[in-house]
């Protein structure tokens, strides 16, 4: 047990987090973000309102957290979360977010840049059926995702990791995109 758990047992810490979450959902989110109550009168009949189901759902969370707090706070099933573990996880998420961003924007940015330089009227949306153009974002984004994640685990970025990422992205293009006309790889469904 360390300062991370704010001097509680890890189970008590878990319970408190979910207890607070459930209270916020019940006290703030549901009342302010659902238009109808638990029961509503419609055309002189009472019907179940939209609030009932999420209230029960939050009730499950609340009841579960209360059970842990009351009966399971000293159970053997305690979790551990070290700072190094958190940093490692954060790095993975950042790599994925960067890769997704590249996947989404690289193709359009390249086409816009080329259009600006060449003076041609080009638009990514109109070129998204062209082999190569439609794959560039996925290819480079996929390479960054896999290469970056491998690098996070290995503690260093290697050419090998990037090549693996590139090859695997190519394989996925061959599996998902080339044989099927109706399947779209990122970002071709968004543009």
């Amino acid at each position: 047990m360390g300062p991370f758990y704010f001097f509680m047992t890890p189970n008590k810490f878990t319970a408190v987090i979910f207890l607070v979450f459930a209270i916020v959902v019940l006290g703030v989110w549901i009342p302010n973000d659902v238009e109808t109550g638990l029961l509503e009168k419609m055309r002189r009949h009472w019907v179940i309102g939209d609030s009932l189901a999420p209230t029960l759902a939050a009730g499950f969370v609340l009841f579960g957290a209360a059970l842990i707090l009351l009966f399971e706070k000293r159970d053997e099933a305690q979790f551990t979360m070290a700072a190094a573990q958190f940093v490692f996880f954060l790095k993975l998420v950042i790599v994925i977010l960067v890769a997704l961003s590249v996947m989404r924007h690289l193709g359009p940015i390249l086409i816009n840049t080329y259009a600006a330089i060449s003076g041609l009227e080009l638009e990514y949306r109109l070129l998204r059926d062209v082999i190569g153009v439609k794959h560039i974002g996925f290819l480079i984004g996929g390479m960054i995702m896999i290469g970056g994640m491998i690098a996070v685990v290995e503690g260093r970025l290697s050419h090998r990791a990037l090549v693996i990422g590139l090859i695997w992205s190519l394989v996925l293009i061959l599996v998902y995109d080339l044989p099927f006309e109706d399947l779209l790889l990122p970002p071709n469904g968004d543009v």
Partner: peptide, 29 residues
Amino acid sequence: GSVGRGLISTGLGLLAVYVGTGEDFYPRL
């Protein structure tokens, strides 16, 4: 691991599926 944890997991799953649904014109949550 425990009944408490199982209930939390179930509650979160239900809460997630109820986002953006419902019978009212406004999609709840």
